[in-house]
Design a protein around this nucleic acid. Structure first.
Lengths: 217, 217
DNA sequence: TTGACACCGTACCGAACGGTACGGTACAGC
DNA sequence: GCTGTACCGTACCGTTCGGTACGGTGTCAA
């Protein structure tokens, strides 16, 4: 017949990615309240093609989420010998990147959609976002933490615990507020400030040797 | 005519609260995908009455959210002289209570609904939840922090910063995961563990005098 | 008893939307 | 040139749902 989107690895054609991009735009603009007709209109394609390619509305949403999730990049982890400065820099880079992604329009829209669908209707969107959001972040962060412990820079028993603390210090209530529509999105400088403080506090909690007492403010 | 729900202080009749309770149940069960007809059926009332009392669907949702928000209780803050133990206990009580509320079925359902509506459609649900959630929590916590500072137990310049750290350490990614449908809801003992650790770490970061070095794990 | 009132249950209406079918067009390979 | 194919645009269908209207019932006050 014709290629439905393969469930796992989906090399979308360029025309298909145009459609997905249109969907993403509509998500940002209208949340979950866009119709298949509006997608077709926006992408200048026919509804029939939409259904042929993606099966149904849920398939289209799922494809869009997967496609977007595959696009988010992460800062590289330091390869060379791990000094305290390099370690802190790596954590800081993660934190900044993460906060930027989290407060971005597309991430907010995507998370809203996934959360709404997690509540009503049995689609997998929630699981997918969860898998590509916090879980993936934990997965990428784990080697950094372990390297830091191996280098004697930090101490912890379970990586999971350290990750929980780091996540909390970095994100705090930022994401929740954004999702609920708090209009005051943080600026770049603010994000950098939060990230720096979070890393500082994390090292204060889990670091080993020369903890430079961060002045509270 | 008849009493629409007054926008601010709304003393609902007992029959009306029965309706709101039914709505809350439906929210937990079906998210946003319940119809006005299903509400009427569940509450054994007529749709006409629903519209007479609450105006439209959005009014019903708003009334439900307000009504539920007014119900959440907070632990009392210690009145007497503030020892370090009493301070830590107060923070711990807040943390435990907060985590319990946040991971509860109704809170998850309500936040999902508010987030979905914050994304699409201009209803006030997001703002209401935001106002009665994190903001209210910050408001209630502020006197505790200030009292702690006045008693010389903690040090910080801006309450906002201390609150951000406390929030992050307590909640971390718990709420996000619950909203996205992570099935593994924390047990009571786990919640108490998180709360205790969070308070401990918070005092480690912002406390002044005898910081008992919490062994990391 | 009678009327006003609040409410329930059901039927009804119009709009929106998911999904399908169909005619028309451009382009591939032969 | 011919045929198949992939696609666009539009019309169409069935259902669902928000919102309204209406008849019937219980209650309370005069």
């Amino acid at each position: 017949m014709d290629q439905k989107v393969s469930p796992d690895k989906a090399p979308f054609s360029s025309r298909q990615t145009e459609v997905l991009s249109a969907v993403l735009d509509l998500m940002v603009e209208e949340g979950d309240r866009f119709s298949m007709a509006s997608v077709a209109r926006r992408a200048s394609c026919s509804k029939e093609t939409l259904y042929k390619w993606f099966g149904d509305r849920d398939g289209l949403l799922t494809a869009t989420v997967r496609w977007q999730a595959a696009k988010v990049a992460m800062p590289p982890l330091p390869e060379a010998k791990l000094t305290r400065a390099a370690f802190a820099a790596a954590l800081g880079a993660f934190a900044v990147n993460w906060l930027k992604v989290l407060t971005g329009d597309v991430s907010v829209a995507l998370n809203r959609l996934a959360i709404a669908h997690a509540g009503s209707g049995g689609s997998d969107l929630g699981r997918i976002v969860l898998e590509n959001g916090p879980f993936e972040m934990a997965r990428r962060l784990e080697p950094v933490f372990v390297a830091g412990r191996d280098a004697g820079l930090v101490e912890f028993d379970k990586v999971e615990t350290a990750f929980r603390s780091f996540f909390g210090l970095v994100v705090a209530d930022t994401q929740t507020r954004a999702l609920l529509g708090d209009t005051s999105r943080p600026k770049q400088t603010e994000i950098r400030g939060w990230a720096a403080r979070a890393v500082d506090q994390f090292l204060q909690l889990y670091g080993t040797a020369p903890r430079h007492a961060a002045k509270p403010n």
